[in-house]
């Protein structure tokens, strides 16, 4: 069906429904739809996850670890001992009518940048109170350089460095959006977290030749893989859509069309705000903005807890299957 079209009567019905706390599909303002998630379904990647929100949204997130040269900031000399994370999001043209031809380019760029901003911000450890006090006009956080802590959204980038000044692990996070049913950003970050949790990279061993020359050796043993350090500190997103004087989570496509202003709040498991992104033309009162950030934080924390429980449960099942010498049971593309 044509996206981006809605009739005035539907708009009014959704608006008043949000006001009355009865949304078109019977949810209340703070209710999420069911999310189905499966990890480790693409064997060519270091880690992968497929996330589906009941009602449409469907995406595939993969993490690919490759060895590449370190990226050194020519001014500050920063980054010589750090790995990198590179994000890219692509929308499948057949998923939505608006994404045909060049239509998806803008969405791809926007989503890739939001993701990069959230994941590469070194400010994962921003004190939550200081964000509250920040001016409401600073609605989008500029992509900041990694802080001295060396963390990228909680991930310890220095652990990804192999030979300081020369080689490091580069984590390519690629997302493919297969179907659109609203609330893509939240699903994207859930998928990223699940995929990073699924990721294992080989251990490397540094060898020194004496005259300042280094080389490294990859350990082939699959038993000797390591997980990404600091992964549990990665943030996820809660997107709040302001409709009328209220706001809702997990908007459906029609609700997204009625949305006046949208606030995406990236939160880590400690409830700390790791990023804010405001989109759409509408505006919001400073008091509402603070309220939205506050509820984004509590929701995000709860969301991470439940997501982690799901990821851990799946990992445990997979492990027990492996112990029995059987391949883990995955539905992959045969899933409903």
């Amino acid at each position: 069906m044509p996206t981006n079209l809605i009739s005035p009567a539907e708009r009014d019905y959704i608006l008043k429904g949000v006001e009355a706390n009865v949304r078109a599909d019977g949810r209340q303002r703070g209710d999420y739809r069911e999310v189905s998630i499966e990890t480790g379904i693409i064997s060519q990647t270091s880690g992968s996850a497929r996330v589906k929100i009941a009602g449409g949204t469907d995406m595939l997130v993969s993490v690919r670890a490759e060895i590449g040269p370190v990226l050194v900031d020519s001014e500050t000399g920063d980054g010589a001992d750090k790995g990198q994370i590179i994000c890219s999001v692509e929308c499948v043209p057949s998923a939505s009518q608006g994404w045909e031809g060049r239509g998806a380019d803008d969405v791809n760029n926007e989503l890739s940048q939001i993701m990069a901003r959230i994941l590469s911000s070194g400010n994962a450890m921003v004190d939550s109170t200081s964000t509250d006090a920040s001016s409401p006009s600073a609605t989008s956080k500029p992509s900041s350089t990694p802080s001295s802590k060396g963390g990228a959204a909680g991930i310890d980038l220095s652990k990804l460095c192999i030979i300081p000044g020369r080689l490091c692990w580069i984590l390519y996070i690629d997302a493919l959006i297969l179907d659109y049913g609203g609330n893509i950003i939240d699903a994207l970050l859930m998928g990223t977290r699940a995929a990073i949790f699924d990721t294992q990279i080989p251990k490397t061993q540094l060898q020194e030749f004496g005259d300042g020359q280094f080389d490294f050796e990859l350990q082939d043993d699959t038993e000797d893989m390591v997980t990404i350090e600091g992964r549990e500190n990665m943030p996820i997103c809660v997107t709040l859509n302001k409709i009328g004087a209220r706001y809702i989570v997990d908007a459906s496509p029609l609700e997204e069309l009625v949305t006046e202003a949208r606030l995406t709040i990236a939160v880590n498991k400690y409830g700390q705000v790791c990023g804010l992104q405001k989109s759409q033309e509408g505006c919001m009162e400073p008091s509402l903005l603070l309220e939205m950030i506050q509820s984004g934080k509590t929701m995000g924390q709860a969301l991470i807890k439940q997501l982690d429980a799901k990821i851990e449960a799946e990992a445990a099942t997979d492990l027990s299957m492996r112990m029995q010498g059987k391949p883990p049971q995955k539905y992959g593309f045969f899933a409903q």
Binding site: Y32, S36, I37, A309, A335, Q336
Partner: peptide, 13 residues
């Protein structure tokens, strides 16, 4: 807040 995270099932299950 409660969100249900499910495992996928086979189509037409």
């Amino acid at each position: 807040m409660q969100v249900s995270f499910l495992s996928p099932t086979a189509r037409g299950a």
